[in-house]
């Protein structure tokens, strides 16, 4: 499936590691879908399943994003630069509810709430890992 250009959501993107890798990734394993690898363009979505929703609870921050399941693809675009990366859903996350109201801005335009988690491979394609979060638009 190819990545599309129909707008789906907007918010903050953060990053996480997964797969059998070094650091704290080992315990995370290959994610809720069993396919997640840090070195591939992959992502975690808060509404991957009902069980996932119960963990992330984005609705508590006013984010009612639709269900998208393992293997769904999305285009994630940096709000400021337009740099875009196409990712495949492979895990559940981020924990939106724990950071309600958190915003990331560029030049006064802000994106609020953590709505997608990218693997290092995907995140570095549009930003710097040491920044931790980016304002993004999501398309499918």
């Amino acid at each position: 499936m190819a990545c599309g250009s129909t707008s789906l959501w907007a918010g903050e993107a953060t990053w996480f590691c997964c797969g059998n890798a070094w650091g704290s990734c080992g315990s995370a394993g290959t994610g809720a879908c069993g396919t997640c690898q840090s070195s591939k363009h992959m992502a975690a979505w808060p509404n991957l399943s009902a069980a996932c929703w119960d963990i992330t609870r984005p609705d508590l921050c006013g984010e009612n994003m639709p269900r998208r399941t393992c293997g769904a693809v999305m285009n994630v675009r940096h709000q400021c630069s337009g740099a875009t990366v196409c990712v495949t859903l492979a895990d559940c996350g981020p924990r939106t509810k724990s950071f309600c109201g958190e915003a990331t801005c560029c030049n006064g335009a802000c994106r609020t709430n953590r709505v997608i988690d990218l693997t290092p491979s995907a995140f570095t394609a549009i930003g710097s890992l040491s920044s931790g979060k980016l304002p993004v638009y999501i398309y499918e």
Partner: peptide, 17 residues
């Protein structure tokens, strides 16, 4: 104009390990 941050004249690469 939307712009992309990496130059595709040189293929982008990522490494992990």
């Amino acid at each position: 104009e939307p712009m992309d941050s990496l130059d595709t004249a040189i293929p982008a690469a990522f490494a992990e390990g």
